[in-house]
Simulated assay, not measured.
Amino acid sequence: MEEVIGGPFSAVLMNAGKALLVLIVGWILAGRLGAIVRKRVNSNEHIDPTLGNFFASLVKWAVLAIVLVAVLGIFGIQATSIVAILGAASLAIGLALQGTLSDLAAGVMLVVFRPYKLGQFVDIGGTSGTVKDLNLFTTELVTPDNVQIIVPNGQAWGSIITNYSAHDTRRVDLVFGIDYDDSADTAMEIILDIAKADSRVHDDPEPWVRVTNLGDSSVDLTARLWCDAADYWDVKFELTKSIKEAFDAKGVSIPYPHTVEIKKSA
């Protein structure tokens, strides 16, 4: 009796051990192959690094699928049987995995059309960050304060994508309000002199300053400057500070919001 019970039980244990070994080896192999594909693709200067991450993810999941079939084969479930089962349950599987399949399809579309690439700063449906990874199912963003955000590819593809890094240059808009008693021409000259003195500001298109609004408390001046996309924030912050200091030195005031009351005699 012990031999009869022990025989099948030992076979099950042996198959389980083999399956576990195949899973471990397959998982390690999938990771290694994915890393090799990523390294080979990214080492080619003519191929975008975004494709390296995507192809690495594709290879990894393909190897894991083969490993799963091999594990099922250890327990006597043949590949033809798996196909038959999946075919019979295709409707249920499709409904259960429609979100995942949608992310997979969207991932392919993102790689084909490439609305964003690794290292670019984007806004996806109101979520902003630098693209760190794009794989089969998700896009990984990192915010300026180093917070990780995972966006399913289906949501990314179906949302409005604003890519701030798509072009080499960007326009910097600066708005300053000056007092009604100050000279707009003097203030505009100060802004232009500082802008033209900054080597990061492009000469073409030429810096532009105009009176754009007569507000309740101030005359609003708008400056439009062009610079390299990588210099955008430095130019915006540093010129704002420099122009404010120049206004102070030249006696151009930036007024607080206020209301003037005028009384007329009867």
Score class of each variant (00 low, 15 high):
Arg38Met: 09
Leu136Gly: 01
Asp179Gly: 13
Val25Trp: 01
Leu101Trp: 12
Ala88Thr: 07
Ile93Thr: 05
Phe54Leu: 10
Asn44Arg: 15
Gly6Asn: 14
His258Leu: 11
Ile74Tyr: 10
Ala105Ser: 11
Thr100Met: 15
Val260Tyr: 07
Asn44Thr: 04
Arg224Thr: 00
Phe55Thr: 05
Thr240Phe: 04
Pro207Asn: 01
Ile243Arg: 02
Val83Met: 09
Asp48Cys: 08
Asp185Pro: 01
Ile243Leu: 07
Gln148Tyr: 07
Ile93Leu: 15
Ala30Phe: 06
Trp226Thr: 03
Ala156Ser: 11
Asp185Phe: 08
Asp173Gly: 03
Gly26Arg: 05
His167Lys: 14
Asp181Thr: 11
Val83Thr: 05
Gly94Met: 13
Val71Gly: 04
Arg171Met: 14
Ser165Cys: 06
Ala166Glu: 15
Asp216Trp: 04
Leu72Gly: 04
Leu68Tyr: 06
Phe176Gly: 02
Val211Arg: 02
Ala187Met: 01
Pro152Leu: 02
Asp231Trp: 00
His258Glu: 14
Phe75Gly: 06
Gly52Ser: 11
Lys236Ser: 08
Arg171Leu: 05
Pro255Met: 09
Leu72Ser: 13
Thr162Val: 12
Asp198Gly: 01
Phe247Arg: 01
Val122Tyr: 03
Val59Cys: 10
Ser218Gln: 11
Gly31Met: 12
Thr130Phe: 14
Pro255Glu: 07
Asp48Tyr: 09
Ile28Lys: 13
Trp61Val: 11
Lys117Cys: 08
Phe113Leu: 13
Ile82Gly: 05
Leu33Ser: 14
Thr80Gln: 14
Tyr232Pro: 00
Asp185Arg: 09
Leu101Cys: 02
Ile5Trp: 10
Ala105Cys: 09
Ala266Thr: 08
Ile191Glu: 00
Glu206Lys: 11
Leu101Asn: 07
Asp248Lys: 14
Asp193Arg: 15
Ala11Tyr: 09
Asn15Ile: 06
Asp182Trp: 05
Arg171Gln: 15
Ile191Gln: 00
Asp145Thr: 15
Trp208Asp: 00
Ala184Cys: 06
Leu72Thr: 07
Ser128Cys: 09
Ile93Tyr: 10
Val63Leu: 15
Ile191Trp: 00
Val22Gln: 06
Pro205Asp: 04
Thr212Gln: 10
Gln155Thr: 14
Ala187Asn: 01
Ala62His: 10
Gln148Val: 14
Val172His: 00
Ile161Leu: 08
Thr162Lys: 13
Asn153Val: 04
Ser90Leu: 08
Ile93His: 04
Leu20Cys: 09
